[in-house]
Design a protein around this nucleic acid. Structure first.
Lengths: 171, 171
DNA sequence: ACGAGATGGTTTTAGTACCAACGATCGCGC
DNA sequence: GCGCGATCGTTGGTACTAAAACCATCTCGT
């Protein structure tokens, strides 16, 4: 996100003499207006940047980064239901179904029907899932250490605290 | 996202006497493990929470929140090309095409072929687009003031600064 | 028991996103 | 002029997401 080393190039179309606002490269002199100072916008940029970085970090991994939190939460909460998992992970339960289908097909998790509630599943990692999780965890730790080094230890706690406040307050 | 007012309900299936880790409500006692302290995870939660809040704020608006930054950037940079816009907005240019198709179909923007470069378009708001943007801007201002009140004026600058650092550093 | 209402999981639909590949066009060196 | 390489916008493929409709099942009041 935010073009890495944008490499300024001569605009080919619009001519800079007339309209400062509309060159074709759009690398530097774009007017962001109020966006410049809006939290929501920067939150989105930072999130996608972080996600992209994680994706690069997890390159060659057998599991896409999106699966990671899912696996970890199952590992930490064996027997959790799909609905509870979806809430913990802040995704709609309908999003989870196909993901779990895939993980189950790959023998990384198990879906067990409890006797007392035949609607729900109890989710568990298989041994293969456990070791996959270990790999991913190492990867995610590298990623988060990277973020930490960008933020710096001094700001980290406050930053995390503010994120938590936002999450809690926006329900 | 994150069901607003989760409304604690008695677990129907799993029984809390035996497994503290696996009740069906999943509201409070989920073990997040290392996720608890990872920046990336909280960044995602905060971003989606903010996005959802914005969606609620813009309820009944004719435009989805995702369109907002697009409209604003066109309004601020009349004549901008699609590629430049996609970079400014940090999205792939291919994502933009169908969005602009829609906005154009609704007569909110115009695509003008410049004479000197018949590959590109110069994007502009129509008068209808302008007034739509005004509405959305008011809406976004309410939203961002809301975020501000959660964060508090003391932490705001540092928080924004950290977001900017992350965005810049992760390219 | 029994029926109304709530809950768990799936499916469908629609929106959003990236990447790779493509045709059209442009710029530049020759 | 000519042609190579780059750029602009689009398309096709894949992936992820939420919302709503749906069925099966469970809970609870009566």
């Amino acid at each position: 996100m935010a073009p890495r080393k944008p490499r300024v190039r001569k605009p080919n179309g619009a001519d800079a003499r007339l309209r400062r606002t509309a060159d074709a490269t759009g690398n530097t002199d774009v007017d962001y207006g109020p966006l410049e100072n809006w939290i929501g916008f920067h939150l989105r940029l930072a999130q996608t940047a972080s996600f992209q970085a994680f994706t690069r970090e997890a390159k060659g991994m057998a599991l896409r980064p999106g699966r990671f939190a899912t696996m970890l939460l199952i590992g930490r909460n064996p027997g959790i239901s799909q609905t509870a998992l979806s809430r913990a992970n802040s995704r709609d339960k309908s999003t989870l179904s196909p993901v779990l289908d895939d993980l189950e097909r790959r023998k990384l998790i198990k879906r067990v029907r409890p006797k007392n509630d035949r609607r729900s599943y109890r989710l568990e990692l298989t041994p293969a899932g456990e070791s996959m999780l270990k790999e991913l965890t190492a990867c995610a730790e590298r990623h988060d250490r990277n973020l930490d080094s960008i933020i710096g230890p001094r700001d980290r706690e406050q930053f995390l605290g503010t994120l938590r406040k936002l999450i809690a307050e926006l329900s």
